[in-house]
Amino acid sequence: MTAHALLTVRGLTKRYGDRVGCLDVGFDLWSGEVLGVVGESGSGKTTVLHCLSGRLEPTAGSTAFLQRDGSVVDILRLPEAARRRLARTDWALVQQNPRDGLRMAVSAGANVGERIMAVGARHYGQIRGQALDWLTQVEIPRERIDDLPGTFSGGMLQRLQIARCLVTRPRLVFMDEPTGGLDVSVQARLLDLLRGLVADLGLSAIVVTHDLAVARLLAHRLLVMRGGEIVESGLTDQVLDDPQHPYTQLLVSSVLQP
């Protein structure tokens, strides 16, 4: 076990006047772990994600992120330049709508290659080679590399976004409802892919989802949120098979079994 968590969050709070987006959220994320944050609409799970990924400014809270060189930074207090750099290299955000996370005006290969070009890759052949490798990893046919993303299906767009995000081998990946809006069979395929990538690449991830089945498949641990607060946390199968909190019990029992 490593001595220091990859990411520690304490007291994360976001208020909108009297309303609470999230309240006093805290957790540790260890290297190689996938943390699922589950809850219904309004639970605050997306607020937590936005606060950590830089889209929202939290009202209070502190974090400790273990960087590649061993130093620890509070990502909430980083200057914007450093945070943007981190977001391009050591982190990734897989957005719910893949069009928000892709450049629709350039080819698939350019989308995948952009981040490595941004950190200095200067050999066209090698960049293209890496892009082809990643397309293969996310099961997009190699011959689509020069196609514009507008010609891709929803599932393929999401997989392209994942390839674009992972090309710099980020150590921490945020995923916002990664299977949202996709057909069930497409979801299944995407989840398989994510499971495989997490295992093969040793990714650490925070996955926000309302879908317990997705959480069970992807996450090692769960945080259950409601009304902005964490009501229960623990090992995924334990929280889903032996829920302790009344709300968790309600959530689990509400899931339809086909």
Partner: peptide
């Protein structure tokens, strides 16, 4: 990054 994306395209 996007300047080299332009050349790549």
């Amino acid at each position: 990054g996007i300047m080299h994306v332009r050349l790549y395209e």
